[in-house]
Every structure is written in structure tokens, then in C-alpha cells.
Design a protein around this nucleic acid. Structure first.
Lengths: 246, 246
DNA sequence: GAGGCGCATTGATCCACGTCAAGTCAGTGC
DNA sequence: GCACTGACTTGACGTGGATCAATGCGCCTC
């Protein structure tokens, strides 16, 4: 039994202050409590499929999921990396337009779609928070467009580690990453490649190159140690003042 | 004097039913009327600069603007193409994080930032509409990530024409593009290249290639005739059921 | 501990797109 | 008409990343 099974009250929830419910007061929270349900998805399982109806909208409590599009000929592009407090699904739309897959074991806090849509309409705190989260995601998506469109393979891989380090630091402590940071990689090399618009081979070569340049260490396949975060950020094509969006 | 100078009442506004005000009732509209101001920007001028404060938020009434990021070494990526009814700026943020430039002459409907932020808070119809528009833009940004990450140069150029045709048809008649459609190109070849993550030379060559393949005609530098829209959409890597997002 | 299976890495080669360098063409001014 | 300019196109060539093909390596089963 995982820790999540014992959570029932929202005020014990690890994403209480970051998710779509962040701004809710006690009364609103009570309403959410009444209609939420938890669900745990094993690594590799599908959470939603492009074109298929999505009966529930949900927040990620723990774990990591990818949101991707696969073209007919097999080319795949991941358009979003979903981490704790991120939201899955869109109020006002019946179907998902992307495939959403659990990269690691994922625990979700779910709401029946119609119920949630009603809550968005009736609860300004939820609507306002959802707007802010969506604006943030839009910034992230646009930042990623710069990476996909204009960066070299090496810069892409560095940018991925930098961005992941920022997001993990954000959800862990809420502060920017320390100079020396260890990342847990929730994705396989193939999933990283799909996120970066590269092949798995090029991704692997660039990871090796960054390691040989002393910019990262790879204690295991699913971990990356960053000895000097600023140096790696520079390699990712950032001007010195740091990234604007996580 | 352009036509816009004579517009003062919102119900004569060409973007009345598509912009952030779309869902407002008469009373709400009156409030917007009181605080709005029009502004016309010449082609090529800057509307906002990355890192600079943005005193006004605005909707595009006519014309076209680009939203882009330029890296220190001169590489540039356009992250959004702004057309009539699109919104510039983000409530809750003081500065723009992108450069916004008028690609053609642009007319804006502007609101002082603080005023608009108050209206978003107090007017559920504005907040709800802004949420829907932001969700739509997020979809567009993610669709574009697929183009940037996984498409060939030829597919990118085709996808650009297809997407522009859809958006122009949407704002013109509100319906999908006819089989044979003529596009007005609001962007220079260089701006197109920046949007597609290509060089200007490759962009030009692919336009030539599409013309030689009979998929487009180029009556002038700033116009594209699409003889068979479906065929071009296929060339842009779309499965037959058509694009999900404009 | 031998075989097999899934990832990841590494190497050799290829090619799509970038780079560099001329043209070409439509305006615009004189 | 003729130079001048700026945007676009075309050509020749180089290269970064894709492709194809082994090889390595942890982990599981028996």
C-alpha cells in the first residue's frame, strides 16, 4: 500500500498549494473533497488516448506522465511533460487530443469531467487558478518551441536537464536548484528523444558528450548529477540572467 | 484615416464575437467601452520587447504580429503568430517575456494593465473567455511543437500555409477553408523561416518545390494560392481526418 | 552461470538542411 | 532610362544529426 492510499483529506495532500485547488478556501475544498477520487496508474500505462473521450480530469499527485502525438509513420513528439500538480485534460472538451502515458507510476486526483466543469463555472478561485496554470503552461510550451526550433542537439539535451532540475526543485523545496543537484530521470532515453525532437542515438551521444565535458555525471541510467548548475544552463543557451520560465 | 478611427462602439467591432470580450453582456461591454483605447502601429514597429514592462494589454483588431525570442547569437524563433482577436500580454505579469512586432500595420484595442486585471477578477465572462482563449493557444503552441520537432522542411512550409489558411478562413467567414483558397501572406520569408525553425534559403527552396509540385501557386510574393487544400494538408503530414487545432 | 530480452551506447555512413556566395527582380529616386 | 536598394531565389558545398548496424550491459528466468 503506497502512502497515497492513506490520504483522504486535501490538507494532507502534497500538491495542496500548487495544484488547481491551490487558492480554494475551506468551503470550496470541502466541495472538492466530496467529488474527488484517487487513482494509481502503473508505469507505462495509458492515461488518455488521442481522439478518445476523457471521462475524468485530474491532477498529478506523484509520478510523471508524457503528453505526445504520434504521426501515422511512427514519428512521435512529446508536447508536454506532466509532473506533480500539473493538470490533465481540458474543461470544455470531451476528448483528449494527445496520448497521455504514465512514465513512472502515477497517482492522480480525479474529478468527473461534468462535475469539474460545473465547479470551474461556479467557483471563481478554481477558474482563476486554472487560468494562471494554463498561462504558465503556455509559457512553458513557447519556451520549448525555442528549444525545438533553434537549438542544437547538445543544447537541447542540456536544456532538458536544466528545465527538469528547475521543475523538480520547484516541487520539492519550492526554490531554485542548488549549484550541485542530482536529478531523478523519470524518462527513458527514447522518451527524452521524443521530447527533444531527436533520435535516441543522438540523445545518447550528447549525454555522453556532456559527461565527457564534465557538465554532468551519470551515476545511473535514471539519474543525472549536475556539478555546476549555472555552467549547464549556459550550455543550454541561456543568457546569464537565467531562464524566465521553468 | 483608416476605418478603425471611426469605430467607437464595440458592437461595430470586427472581433466583437471572437475576442476576449466575446461573452460579455451589454453592461460588461459598457465597462469595456469606457476603458478601452485604440492604437494603430505601423508595419515593422515594436509592440513589446522581451523583459520590458508592458503597460497595456490588448487585442488585435486588424493586422498581424509576431511573438518571438532572439538568442544572444542572433538565432530567432517565433513562438506565436498573432492575428485578429488574439490577445497580447498576460494578466498578472508586468513584463513581456517575448518581443512582439507588427508584421503588417496593426490596430489594437488596448486596456491599461491594472484596469484589465481588475476586470478579469470582477467579470466572470471575461475570465471565462480568457481561459478558453488561453487553452486554445496552448493547443496551438503544442501542435506547433510537433511541427518544429518532427516535420521535414517541406512539411513545415506546407503546415504553415495550411494553418494560416485555417486561421484566415476562421476570422473571415468563420468556416473551414474552401477547396481552392488564396492566402494573404502577412510575413516576409525571413519571418516565415523564424516561425518554422528554418533558414530563409531552405524556406524559399521549399516554397519553390511546393510550387513545382503543383501544390501551391504564388501569384505574388505576399500571396499563395492553394488549388486543393486537402492535398496540401496531406503534404503537411496530416492524417485524412484533418487537423484538430487551427 | 548460461541464455535471452530490453535498453543504452558506440561506430560507420548518408543526406537534409545550413552556410556561403551569386544572381534575379520589383520598387524608388533621379 | 539607369543606378540603387532590399527582398527573394538559386547554386555549390559543408556538416550536424539521422540511419543502419553492431556491441555492451543490467536483469530476469531457468
Amino acid at each position: 500500500m503506497s502512502k497515497i492510499d492513506r490520504i483522504s483529506r486535501c490538507d494532507e495532500c502534497p500538491i495542496r498549494h500548487n495544484a488547481v485547488c491551490a487558492e480554494c478556501d475551506a468551503a470550496e475544498l470541502a466541495m472538492l473533497e466530496a467529488s474527488k477520487s484517487y487513482m494509481t496508474i502503473p508505469a507505462g500505462a495509458t492515461i488518455a488516448s488521442a481522439g478518445e473521450p476523457l471521462t475524468h480530469l485530474s491532477s498529478i499527485i506523484t509520478g510523471c506522465a508524457t503528453m505526445s502525438r504520434t504521426l501515422e509513420d511512427g514519428r512521435r513528439q512529446t508536447v508536454g511533460l506532466l509532473l506533480p500538480s500539473n493538470f490533465i485534460g481540458r474543461p470544455g472538451r470531451e476528448c483528449s487530443i494527445y496520448d497521455v502515458e504514465a512514465a513512472s507510476e502515477v497517482t492522480l486526483c480525479r474529478f468527473e469531467r461534468r462535475t469539474f466543469e460545473r465547479m470551474v463555472q461556479d467557483t471563481p478561485h478554481i477558474a482563476a487558478r486554472l487560468l494562471m496554470m494554463t498561462l504558465d503552461e503556455l509559457d512553458v510550451a513557447r519556451e520549448w518551441a525555442v528549444v525545438l526550433g533553434r537549438m542544437t542537439a547538445r543544447e537541447k539535451v542540456a536544456a532538458f536537464f536544466v528545465s527538469l532540475a528547475r521543475r523538480q526543485a520547484q516541487t520539492d523545496g519550492g526554490r531554485p536548484p542548488a549549484r550541485t543537484t542530482t536529478l531523478k530521470l523519470p524518462l527513458s532515453r527514447e522518451a527524452i528523444a521524443d521530447h527533444l525532437g531527436l533520435t535516441i542515438e543522438t540523445t545518447s551521444r550528447q549525454i555522453t558528450a556532456l559527461r565527457k565535458a564534465g557538465l554532468i555525471e551519470t551515476p545511473s541510467l535514471r539519474a543525472v548529477l549536475i556539478p555546476d548548475f549555472e555552467k549547464l544552463a549556459l550550455e543550454a543557451g541561456e543568457d546569464d540572467d537565467g531562464g524566465i520560465v521553468a
